[in-house]
Amino acid sequence: MGLEAVVNEIREKGRKEVEAVRAETRAEVEEILRDAQVRAAEIKLSAEEEAGRVAARTTNQEVSAANLVVKRQVLNAQKTLLDQVYSASLAAVGDLPAEFQEKALTDLLKRAAKEIKKGVVHVNERDVPVVEAIISRQKTLSGYTVGAPVEIPGGVIVESTDGELQIDYSYGTFLDEVWESGLKDASDILFA
C-alpha cells in the first residue's frame, strides 16, 4: 500500500468519524431542542394557569368591591328613606287634630303629675294656650305653670320647680322609643 492509499484511508476514516460526531451532535441538539420545547410548553402552560388564577382573583375582587359599593348605596338610600319616614311620622303626629292634641296633652300632664306634683310645663308655642286651659281646668294640675315654649313637635316636658327632675313626654321622645324598638320591623316591611 502506498502512502497515498494510507492517506486516503486515514481521510476516509476521519471523514467517517466526523460524520459520526456530526450525527451524534445533531442527535444531541435535536434532543436538547425537544427537551427545551417540552420545558417551554410546561412553562407556557404554567404561566397560562397562573394568569388564569390572577385574572379570576382580580375579577372576584372587582366583583366583591362593586357589590360592596352597591350595597353601601342601597343602605344609604334605605337610611335616607327611613329618615324621611321618621320625619314624616313626627310631622304627622304634630299635625293631628286639635281634639286629639288636647286629649293627649291632658293625659300626658296627668301622667307627669303622678311623678312631679309642682313644676313648670314646657310645650311648643302652638300648644301653650291649650296647656294653659288644661291646667286651669284640672285640679290635680294646680301646682303647674306654663314655661317658655320649646322646639318640640308636640307633647310636654315637665320640670320640677326645684329643677332637679325633668320628665320628657314629647312626641319626639315617644317616637324615638318606638322607632328604636321597631326599626328592624319597619326596615323589613319597607325593604323586604
Rank of each mutant, 00 (worst) to 15 (best):
M1Y: 13
G2S: 08
E4T: 06
E4P: 01
E4V: 12
E4C: 09
A5D: 15
V7C: 04
V7N: 08
N8T: 09
N8L: 12
I10C: 08
K13A: 09
K13N: 08
G14R: 13
K16Q: 13
K16Y: 05
V18W: 05
A23I: 07
A27G: 11
E28G: 07
V29F: 08
E31R: 07
I32A: 07
R34L: 10
R34K: 13
R34Y: 12
A36R: 15
E42A: 06
I43W: 12
S46P: 12
S46W: 08
E48Y: 01
A51S: 11
A51T: 08
A51P: 09
A51I: 09
A51G: 14
R53T: 02
V54L: 13
V54E: 03
V54T: 11
R57S: 05
Q61N: 10
E62C: 03
E62Y: 07
S64A: 12
A65G: 13
A65C: 03
A65R: 14
A66V: 11
A66L: 09
L68W: 14
V69A: 09
K71N: 14
Q73V: 05
Q73N: 15
L75R: 03
N76G: 15
A77I: 04
A77C: 05
A77H: 03
A77L: 15
L82F: 08
L82P: 01
Y86C: 01
A88N: 10
S89V: 01
L90D: 02
D95N: 13
D95K: 13
E99N: 14
K103D: 14
L105C: 04
T106N: 07
D107E: 12
L109R: 01
R111I: 07
A113N: 00
K114A: 11
K114E: 06
K114V: 04
I116D: 02
K117Q: 04
K117D: 06
V121C: 02
V121P: 00
V123N: 02
V123W: 00
E125S: 15
R126N: 15
D127G: 04
V128L: 01
V128E: 02
V131I: 10
V131W: 00
E132N: 12
S136D: 07
K139N: 12
L141T: 01
S142C: 04
S142R: 06
Y144V: 02
V146A: 01
G147I: 02
I152M: 04
I152D: 00
P153Y: 10
V156F: 01
E159W: 09
D162A: 04
G163S: 10
G163L: 07
E164A: 03
L165R: 07
Q166S: 05
I167G: 02
I167W: 03
D168F: 01
Y169A: 10
Y171L: 12
G172T: 11
F174D: 08
L175G: 04
D176A: 15
E177H: 12
W179F: 03
L190T: 07
F191S: 04
F191G: 02
